[in-house]
Design a protein around this nucleic acid. Structure first.
Lengths: 166, 166
DNA sequence: GTCTATAGTGGGATAGAC
DNA sequence: GTCTATCCCACTATAGAC
């Protein structure tokens, strides 16, 4: 099992995803970039899910870092979270908008990404609600679900105010 | 253009989606349920997106009704919203987890679904944040994104408290 | 004119030859 | 390790039955 090919495939996948979006993330495209045929990829990967898992792990680590760097100020953390989502829209969607393959994730990764927010908020349940709120704002913005003229800076500020004033 | 076939196809699509999930929502499956071949469906519909649009419209109307019935109590509205999402998980995902085909939606439908919350909250920006928060909680729960043992009743209560105490 | 079947594109995935 | 060939999926184009 050529470990190198696996890493190469993940790197190509991330580049394609971020540059051209989800539709470009096809086994045929990735294989072509590596100079081989699509079926050959399956000798190095279990399947497309394997590739996506690697991208999910990368992104969760990055999100945890981004939040930790902005902690413990809730406003700064919200801005950092929003910025990450807007700067990596296709990756953010890939990572958040589906069930987590928990059993295949490195030990502690999920908790590590969440820790800065839990510590900044204090209460566990309140922290979950705050994460859900931030994710809701981010994903609805990415999916263009707010009305065209909506002032999203104001909505984010209202969110921070709701969770920060206590 | 047989309008009847269109309605039949939408009804079959909703039944399949709710009963068996997104994967069952294939043109082949729907056509088979109607006793015709998949390509023939395209004479009655523009494509799969046409079918999904009809389901999106149905769901947005239902969500607006559900919120209006629970208004103006924020706790009741949150519980009603969550209940709708949990009772129609595949439909909720289909409707919310992608860009809205706004230009093809009936006039006022989107605003109508949002109105109960805007009126209950008062402030437009705060209402958007509250909707995003509720959507975040609902979609993360549906996608199994909270840790296994998480007390989501408590998280929803924390969310309502954050937006209600004012 | 309304219906249908056939064939072809491009996606994920697999089996088996070399 | 890579290949060809094959299968199922959504979708499109087109020709033809009636």
């Amino acid at each position: 099992m050529a470990e190198v090919r696996h890493r190469e495939a993940v790197a190509v996948a991330r580049r394609l995803l971020e540059a051209e979006g989800e539709d470009a993330l096809s086994m045929r495209r990735i294989a072509a970039e590596l100079g081989i045929r699509a079926p050959s990829l399956y000798k190095h990967l279990d399947g497309k899910a394997d590739l996506e898992l690697a991208l999910i792990i990368e992104a969760l680590e990055e999100i945890g870092d981004v939040l930790a760097s902005a902690a413990p100020d809730l406003g700064a953390m919200a801005r950092a979270y929003r910025r990450y989502a807007l700067e990596h829209p296709h990756l953010y969607v890939l990572v958040t908008q589906r069930p987590l393959p928990r059993e295949r994730l490195p030990e502690g990764l999920e908790q590590g990404a969440a820790r800065p927010l839990v510590e900044a908020i204090g209460d566990e349940h309140r922290a979950r609600a705050a994460w859900a709120a931030a994710h809701g704002m981010a994903i609805l913005e990415l999916n263009g679900r707010f009305p065209p003229g909506a002032d999203l800076d104001a909505a984010w500020a209202a969110l921070v105010a709701a969770f920060g004033d206590r």
